[in-house]
């Protein structure tokens, strides 16, 4: 909701001063909506897959999957924030999200209770959500 407020403040600033504001434009609503849709879709897939893995394998494997999926959600959030800041505060897309992934895999390899494959596949849940979103967008157009 802060992002919407930022957009409103930016548009009022621009009208008051007469300059084009570098702050979020009102068309950014569409972007925030896309972000929310992707997040919801990822969470939905995460819950469905978590339950399926729990039933098919074990609670331990499904919890490993959940760790990866949660990291995937955080990764997507960081990437979205990085894209939102592109051309405003930053001139390039940040690499913080990759550091998160490297940390996750290194921890998965060092801790005995964790398994690499479920964590990695859990991390890729966001990508499945992206593909699902693309198919949904294609079917509506």
């Amino acid at each position: 909701m802060d992002e919407k407020d930022d957009a409103q403040v930016a548009s009022t600033d621009a009208s008051a001063t007469g300059f084009i504001s570098p702050e979020p434009h009102s068309s950014m609503e569409e972007y925030y909506q896309l972000q929310n849709e992707l997040l919801l879709l990822t969470l939905l897939l995460m819950v469905v897959t978590f339950i399926s893995v729990w039933m098919a394998y074990s609670l331990n494997t499904s919890l490993n999957y959940l760790i990866g999926a949660c990291s995937g959600v955080v990764y997507l959030k960081l990437l979205a924030r990085s894209v939102a800041q592109l051309g405003r505060q930053k001139s390039k897309v940040g690499k913080n999200q990759l550091a998160l992934f490297i940390g996750l895999i290194v921890i998965a390899t060092q801790v005995e209770q964790l398994q690499i494959v479920p964590i990695f596949l859990g991390f890729l849940t966001y990508k499945a959500a992206l593909i699902a979103y693309m198919f949904k967008a294609l079917s509506t157009t």
Binding site: H25, S27, M28, E29, E30, Y31, Y32, L34, Q35, L38, L76, L79, A80, V83, A84, L86, V93, Y126, K127, L130, Y133, M134
Partner: peptide, 14 residues
Amino acid sequence: EGKIRGTLLLTLAF
């Protein structure tokens, strides 16, 4: 802007 950034987010994620 919103549409362009949305498309960019999807392509960058891929």
